[in-house]
């Protein structure tokens, strides 16, 4: 069981890093989302993979039996929600950038930074 999880973790994180290094804007963002999901899986496994029963105290009992670790589940749920929100934001941002810039090549996107082949002194921007 743990070998399958480790394999999945490695594959997802590798794929995520590979895509995130891409010049293509959407691939890069999808890669980051995939990387996030891989790390969420890692967070989930940090609570150990030992029991499949949900962490609920049965009616009448007062102590929790041998169940899955509820803390790791709470953590991973929070992390999933956050990464979901980040993915939503990044997709809207990417669409706006592609609409404005007419290109999804991240190398062509140098609006906020000086170009690497600029002269010794940075060029004066007309618009402040």
């Amino acid at each position: 069981m743990s070998w399958a999880v480790i394999l999945a973790l490695g594959t997802v994180i590798t794929a995520g890093i590979y895509l995130a290094l891409s010049r293509d804007l959407f691939r890069c963002l999808i890669g980051l989302a995939l990387l996030g999901n891989g790390i969420n899986l890692m967070l989930f496994t940090s609570g150990r993979l030992n029991s499949l029963s949900p962490p609920i105290i049965p009616a009448g009992d007062t102590v929790l039996g041998a169940t899955a670790n509820p803390l790791a589940q709470a953590l991973v749920l929070t992390a999933i929600v956050i990464s979901f929100a980040m993915l939503c934001f990044s997709l809207i941002l990417a669409i706006r950038i592609v609409q404005e810039n007419r290109s999804d090549d991240t190398i062509a996107l140098r609006e906020a930074e000086p170009h690497s082949n600029d002269p010794l002194k940075p060029i004066i921007e007309d618009e402040p």
């Binding site: 995130a20 969420n40 980040m86 941002l93 706006r96 950038i97 404005e100 906020a112």
Partner: peptide
């Protein structure tokens, strides 16, 4: 503007990598 979106993208990607490492 495009300048602002570009800045947002760079801020987003690098900081997201930071928070993923933290996670």
């Amino acid at each position: 503007g495009l300048k602002h979106f570009d800045a947002t993208l760079k801020y987003f990607v690098l900081n997201l990598v930071g928070t993923l490492l933290l996670l």
